[in-house]
């Protein structure tokens, strides 16, 4: 199942990357004579009300969501690992300060924090800037959960044999942290990364649905979902539902990549 999920994600990422070459149109190219066209040979998913090819927009949206969510996740895990590891390893006032900030971040609904921070930043920015702002915010605000897990994992390793031996052999605390402890926490970091990616894809989708995510004309899987409101009046249900199906498939595939224990609990 894991291999199938990984294969599916790789195929989606490749299709998203090759979208420009696979389809004859760009995501922002307008076919003014063919607005709201139904799926056909020229436009596999039809066109939207501005005459833009839905398939091209879907692949461009997938490219934004599927490539930038992992980037945001790397940022969040890097922050979480730096704070969690140093808090768990050095302890004392630094541990208390980091734990307080983690508690603060976790005690307030993260979505409220996200919309507040996103709303105070300029909304009237270029599409590329809106993408960067959205995913940077997700990375910068989404580290608390992983920091808590990494801090806990670090504390459980403190009294393990290899750490005690390294310290007894005269290794400095920084060297033990970077050379011995960090590689042993790699599986935890990897799991946290896999947990964060689907979460960020979903957060971006939710932000875009409220108009706080990726700006037009650049699409993302989330911003394309808004068109579902036309479902009752449009005969092109395939073109309208495709972003939701692709989003659910990508996030579902990420969920299946989780180790069984994390997935169940």
């Amino acid at each position: 199942m894991k291999r199938l999920a990984a294969g599916l994600l790789i195929a989606l990422a490749l299709a998203a990357l090759a979208g420009e070459f696979l389809l004859p149109a760009r995501y922002d190219q307008q076919f003014r004579e063919e607005t709201d066209a139904l799926p056909g040979a020229k436009h596999p998913l039809g066109t939207d009300e501005l005459g833009r090819d839905r398939a091209a927009r879907l692949l461009a949206g997938a490219r934004v969501s599927l490539l930038l969510a992992p980037a945001a996740s790397v940022l969040a895990i890097a922050l979480g690992a730096t704070l969690g590891l140093t808090a768990g390893w050095f302890g004392g006032w630094w541990d208390r300060a980091v734990s307080t900030v983690i508690d603060l971040m976790i005690s307030v609904p993260i979505f409220l924090v996200l919309i507040t921070v996103r709303a105070v930043l300029p909304l009237n920015v270029s599409p590329v800037s809106s993408v960067m702002i959205t995913f940077l915010l997700l990375g910068l605000l989404g580290w608390a959960g992983s920091a808590r897990v990494i801090r806990g994992a670090c504390q459980t390793q403190l009294n393990s044999d290899y750490v005690l031996r390294a310290l007894a052999a005269g290794c400095s605390r920084t060297r033990v942290l970077l050379v011995h402890l960090l590689p042993n926490l790699w599986p935890v970091l990897r799991t946290q990364f896999i947990v964060a990616v689907p979460g960020f894809i979903l957060d971006e989708a939710n932000l875009s649905l409220l108009g706080l995510g990726v700006a037009e004309p650049l699409p993302s899987l989330g911003s394309l979902l808004k068109e579902l409101t036309n479902l009752p009046t449009s005969p092109n249900w395939l073109g309208l539902a495709a972003p939701a199906v692709l989003l659910a498939t990508a996030v579902g595939a990420c969920e299946f990549l989780l180790p069984p224990k994390e997935g169940a609990s």
């Binding site: 649905l209 989330g222 979902l225 409101t229 659910a248 579902g252 969920e255």
Partner: peptide, 21 residues
């Protein structure tokens, strides 16, 4: 488990849209 894995893959905003529709 399969059902919940599928449901976890749906953003809350999409659920809200479906409820609205």
């Amino acid at each position: 488990n399969l059902l919940t894995a599928g449901m976890l893959a749906i953003p809350a905003g999409l659920v809200a849209l479906l409820i609205l529709l």
